[in-house]
């Protein structure tokens, strides 16, 4: 395996749900030690794309290659076992379970042997607590607490810590910074850089240009399920990226438009119910 073989590659992947085509001929490559930022408007198909990589959905057409070899994941477990860890956009934790149990859901550590394997609560709690504390959330010191008692950001951090713990080769983060405070968001970015340094391939979804620019080596913009732009770091300016993220509309134009409206309407912003385009 040469160093230039991408860790994960998509070739002309299509995904449709019945009659609805969500992804159209997506081709992407992510190399070892590289961060791919996936950008795009709401509903562009970003989450669908990473769910396809995580084994939640199967592509309708096209193929996924891991280390240059075609793979098909029929279940999320298979993707996990191949070293792909994903933090999905919503959820990822279980409100009425303890921190330790939630962290290890699906991959429980056990002790004992044969049919008498039992869930190793102590070990699970210790690892989970350490993983979240490493995240800068030092208020969590008891793995027996229920996840439902944590704040939204703490829960999000728990989910990310979990993926980082289990992601051996590929780490996929779907809007991980959405619920996080400035400090924790910065920490996620640091983690992404750390993962990159360790040679993982990272796919990072965000709506914040700042976050994307801070870690991305390579950017792909999805518009209505197709790749509209694919460029490397430094090839486009921040303004150009912002425009692409807004679905191809020129943000500067948009702002000017709003300002113009406000001038002619005694300072009121335009009504919200405007048809798109």
């Amino acid at each position: 395996m040469s160093d230039r073989t991408p860790v994960i590659e998509l070739r002309k992947v299509d995904k449709s749900f019945g009659p609805i085509d969500v992804l159209h001929e997506i081709s992407l490559k992510v190399h070892k030690g590289e961060v791919l930022c996936l950008l795009g408007d709401n509903g562009a198909g970003k989450s669908t794309l990473i769910k396809t990589l995580a084994g939640v959905h199967q592509p309708t057409r096209g193929e996924i290659l891991l280390d240059g070899k075609p793979v098909t994941f029929t279940r999320p477990k298979q993707a996990q076992e191949s070293g792909i860890a994903t933090v999905h956009q919503f959820g990822g934790t279980f409100p009425l379970m303890t921190i330790g149990r939630s962290f290890f859901a699906g991959v429980e550590p056990t002790k004992g042997f044969g049919p008498f394997k039992v869930f190793d609560r102590k070990k699970a709690n210790a690892i989970a607590v350490e993983a979240v504390q490493n995240f800068g959330i030092t208020r969590i010191d008891d793995g027996d607490r229920l996840v439902g008692g944590l704040s939204g950001g703490e829960r999000q951090s728990l989910a990310i810590a979990r993926a980082v713990h289990f992601g051996a080769r590929v780490l996929i983060l779907d809007e991980p910074t959405a619920a996080l405070g400035v400090k924790q968001a910065a920490h996620v970015l640091r983690i992404v850089n750390e993962a990159k340094r360790r040679g993982l391939a990272v796919i990072f979804i965000t709506h914040q240009v700042m976050h994307a620019m801070a870690v991305g080596d390579h950017f792909a913009v999805l518009i209505r399920g197709a790749i509209a732009a694919d460029f490397r770091k430094g090839e486009k300016t921040r303004e150009e990226i912002t425009d692409l993220m807004a679905g191809g509309q020129n943000m500067a134009d948009l702002e000017a438009e709003i300002e113009g409206y406000m001038e002619t309407h005694e300072g009121h912003p335009p009504p919200i119910a405007q048809p798109a385009e």
Binding site: V56, P76, G91, L96, R101, A105, G106, E108
Partner: peptide, 20 residues
């Protein structure tokens, strides 16, 4: 047992966590 709680807690997350 953990799988059962996870399944009842959040079915989508349980599926994503690799629980059959």
């Amino acid at each position: 047992g953990n799988w059962i709680f996870a399944l009842g807690g959040d079915q989508e997350s349980a599926r994503n966590a690799g629980i059959p």
